[in-house]
Design a protein around this nucleic acid. Sequence first.
DNA 1: ATGATTGTTTAGACAAAGTCTAAAGTTGGA
DNA 2: TCCAACTTTAGACTTTGTCTAAACAATCAT
Lengths: 142, 142
Amino acid sequence: MDPKAIQESLETSGLRCTQQRYAVMAFLLEHKGHPTAAEIFDAVSRVDPRPSRATTYNNLRDLVKAGLVREVAVEGRGARFDAVGKRHHHFLCDRCGAVEDVEWFEVSKPVPGILGKRVVRACELNLRGLCAACAPESGSLE
Amino acid sequence: MDPKAIQESLETSGLRCTQQRYAVMAFLLEHKGHPTAAEIFDAVSRVDPRPSRATTYNNLRDLVKAGLVREVAVEGRGARFDAVGKRHHHFLCDRCGAVEDVEWFEVSKPVPGILGKRVVRACELNLRGLCAACAPESGSLE
DNA sequence: ATGATTGTTTAGACAAAGTCTAAAGTTGGA
DNA sequence: TCCAACTTTAGACTTTGTCTAAACAATCAT
């Protein structure tokens, strides 16, 4: 995504395109590996010397609220983020902790009635196991 | 699950049945609401006055390693845990943060080839939206 | 342009979540 | 009984995230 497009998507969402905000967004678009807030903070800090941690957290929150970024549900200490792009599932490596995207495929819907009054707005699959780098030559258990 | 059965399942998994460990396991079996580590610590602290936080964390880690307990993947600060029982999916409420079990139903498998060398060991669905308590009378977007 | 208003950044204190260590306490088995 | 292995404990420490008040933009209407 080129700089102009990033700026535009921020402004369309009602966010000013500030240095910091832009840096966070650009970093997320370039790094699809679901970085943690700490990693994002480190990365933008390296460019613009010493922004406060709070700014990075604020910007992440703003971007999530605006729908440009999503927080990924994984177990583990730090929140991880993901620029909203193509729909996809996630694969979590039990050994090295990597969080990888898996190409989207349609999943079965819950049997009607199972959910009661609940309103479903989104639905994603978490696959778990060993990533390509950690996998030995053994087979799957699923 | 009765006390004897809990003790047995611990010992079968190669874990001594200590006071603390038993208390953590029993609490998880009774509270299906996916408590956070902090909640578990508080609960067992109330019974046995002042165990160290470290003990609770150690025991949780041991139980997860033994396969009796699972860490639930949700975004947000504290790790949440779940006694391993019937297979189920999770429903996450966007408004109140509740994590509820959803009765198991079979989900579509990924198209072969999509996963490359990865070895899948588990697979669960995260549904997201508004829980029964938070849902207005509007419809679903999915 | 000028100034009022609003949104943003900053530093640092704070709080919450989790880990580590060293010492002391248990437990089970030879 | 005594040893080796496992547990627990307190507390220091680290990491992650939030909050606040003050300084800094940027915007908009004159």
